[in-house]
Amino acid sequence: MVTKDFSIRINGTAVGPPADPRVSLLDLLRETLQLHGTKKGCDQGACGACTVLADGERIVSCLALAVQYVGRNVVTIEGLAGDDELHPLQRAFIEHDGFQCGYCTPGQICSAVGMAAEARRGVPSHVTPDLTVGEVELTHDELRERMSGNLCRCGAHNGIVAAIAETCAGERK
């Protein structure tokens, strides 16, 4: 018999869902769990600053009711790498100046991790010329389209695209 799991796994730790179903996953992370890496930008799904991974898929945590994520495995920017390590994308963002103020960065990085996984399994995008190809080559046009759900108001997009392009290319070598 399978035991029903009533908790949300967040960066590997089981967390009880909020008693009030109105609490967003974003507010659960920031207000209850004090995981402040995930940022609240627009709180309406437009900016991507609150992007986290749920079972490896990138989502905007501001439009997610936390109760809907019971039984799911959520990873935030704090859980991407080990305690004293950086994720390759975090290193690449530093290398390529992929930020200025840094507010959008955790969302950019979590989004890029999810995006890379989508491309690896062949999910096409709006700019993919041929829908039938198995694996998508992440050209700059593809990257810019696939990352359009993450805004950077400082205008660091060139560095962001460069950091993601380099990391994705490295993964494929």
């Binding site: 991507g48 905007v60 995006m115 096409p124 759900g149 993450n150």
Partner: peptide, 21 residues
């Protein structure tokens, strides 16, 4: 392959994050 208009329409909408949800 059989209904590319549908795949294209879905991919023209929202963002990667929102399409996952």
């Amino acid at each position: 392959t059989r209904y590319p208009v549908l795949a294209r329409a879905v991919l023209a909408g929202a963002s990667g994050q929102i399409r996952n949800m």
